[in-house]
Design a protein around this nucleic acid. Structure first.
Lengths: 218, 218
DNA sequence: GCCAGCGGCTAATGATGATTAGCCATCACA
DNA sequence: TGTGATGGCTAATCATCATTAGCCGCTGGC
C-alpha cells in the first residue's frame, strides 16, 4: 500500500548498463517479503509470489534458486542492516545515556521502517534451514548482547539503575520489536516521533531518578 | 522438558468415572501445543502429533475433529485465560499504580508460565481460520484496551505521565509478550520474580518521578 | 536473416500431508 | 457367550506444492 522500499544495494560485478535484471529480482524479493509477512513462509506458494509480480510460479526459477533462498536473503540482510544501523547510531556518542537513547531510537526506527522484514525475521527463523538459521541467531545474539553491555556500562558508572541488565535489555528490545507488528506510515506518529518516545520510555526504565523528559505536552 | 501443565478443566457433562478419555485428549492437545510452538502449525503434521502421544496420525481423529480444531482450542483458551487472569489480578486494587503493577505482573507471569501457549497464540493467528481468528483478535483488542484505559486513568489522575497511553500500553504488553520467547523455569529468575521486576520497569516507564524501588541491590 | 540466450509458459514429477474408509482387537456388560 | 462401543491400524483418497523438463518467442549483435 505504501512502501517504495529501496532494498538491496545493486551488486553488479560486471557493470551492467540497464536496471531490468536487478529490478525483476528486487520485485520478486519484495513480493515474497510481503507475502511471507502476510501469510507466513509456509503458507506462501511460489505461484503466489509469481502472481504478485505478473508471472507463473515456475518462471520465478529463472531469477531465484528457491523459495528458501528468498527467505534466507530477507532474513540475513535484515539482520545485517539492523546491526549496521545500531552501530552507526551509537558511534558518535560517549555519554552512556545518549548511547542508549540512540541505540533504542535506531532499533525502533528500524522496526517501524522495515516492519515487514523485522516481522518476517522474527517469525520465520524456524523455517530457515541450516546453516543460515544459526548464522542469523548468532547475529541476533550479538545484537542483544550489545544492548546488555551498554546497560551494564551504565550500571557500572552509576548512571543506570536496574536489578538485571538482561531483563532491561530484553524489555527494551521487545518493546521495539513489537512496533513492527502495528506501525504504519501515516498513522498517529511518524517513525522518528515513535523512536524518540520509545527512547524516553527506555531511559525511564533504566533510570531511578526522573529523566529529563521535555515538559511540552505535544 | 519440564511442564506438567494442568490445562483444561475437565468438562464431563454426563459424569464419567475414569479419567482416561479426557487424559488422552489432553495429552494430544499438549503434544500439539509443544509441536506448534517448536516447529509452527503448518510444519507440524498429524503424524508428528500422533507420534508424540504414541499413535499414528489417523488415529488422532478418534479424539479430535481436525488439526485446525487443536489450534483453535489452544488459541481461544489461551486468550480467555489471559483475560481472566488479568481481571482477577486487578480486581482488589483501587490505586491506579497498584492496578497497573498487578496487571503487568499477571501479564508477565502468564507469559512466563504459559509461554508455549502465548508463543503459539502470537505467532499462529494467521493460521487460525475464521471465525475463530476474528474472535481471538477481538479478545486481544479488548485486552490491550484494558491496559490503555488503565494508563489513561492514571494520566487523568496525574499519577502517570507519558505522552501517549497507547505507546505506553503497547510497550508494556510487548515486553511481557517477549518473555514467552525465552523464559524457562529453573533459570535465573522465577516467574514471580520476573513478574515483580517487570512490574517495576513498567511503573518506571509511566512515571515521571522516581518510583519506590527497593534499594536492595540483589 | 541468423542464432544464442533470456525469460516466459505448460506439463510433468515427486513429495508431503490432511483426512477418510474400512478392518480388527479389546472390553464392559447383559 | 454375544455385542456394541471404543480406539487403534493400514491403505486409500485427494490436494497442494516445490521444483524440473522441455518448448518457444523475442531481441540484440553480427
Amino acid at each position: 500500500m505504501a512502501a517504495p522500499d529501496p532494498y538491496e544495494r545493486p551488486h553488479r560485478p560486471g557493470g551492467a548498463d540497464a536496471d531490468t535484471p536487478d529490478d525483476r529480482r528486487g520485485a520478486i524479493r519484495l513480493a515474497a517479503l510481503r507475502l511471507f509477512a502476510g501469510q507466513g513462509y509456509r503458507a506462501t506458494t511460489m505461484a503466489d509470489i509469481g502472481a504478485a509480480v505478473g508471472m507463473r510460479g515456475p518462471s520465478l526459477y529463472k531469477h531465484v534458486a528457491s523459495k528458501q533462498e528468498l527467505l534466507a536473503e530477507i532474513m540475513i540482510s535484515t539482520m545485517e542492516r539492523l546491526i549496521e544501523a545500531s552501530q552507526e547510531a551509537t558511534a558518535g556518542a560517549d555519554d552512556v545515556r545518549e548511547q542508549l537513547r540512540r541505540a533504542v531510537e535506531a532499533h525502533v526506527r528500524y522496526h517501524a521502517r522495515y516492519g515487514l522484514e523485522a516481522f518476517v525475521g522474527n517469525r520465520e527463523i524456524g523455517n530457515l534451514e541450516q546453516p543460515n538459521r544459526d548464522r542469523v541467531l548468532r547475529r541476533r545474539g550479538e545484537y542483544e548482547r550489545g544492548f546488555r553491555r551498554l546497560i551494564e556500562r551504565g550500571l557500572a558508572k552509576g548512571v543506570f539503575d536496574v536489578r538485571s541488565a538482561r531483563l532491561a535489555s530484553y524489555s527494551i528490545l521487545d518493546m521495539g520489536i513489537g512496533v513492527a507488528a502495528w506501525f504504519r506510515e501515516g498513522g498517529e506518529f511518524s517513525a522518528d516521533q515513535l523512536a524518540y518516545q520509545y527512547g524516553d520510555l527506555a531511559l525511564r526504565m533504566v533510570t531511578a531518578t526522573a529523566p529529563a523528559s521535555r515538559p511540552s505536552s505535544g
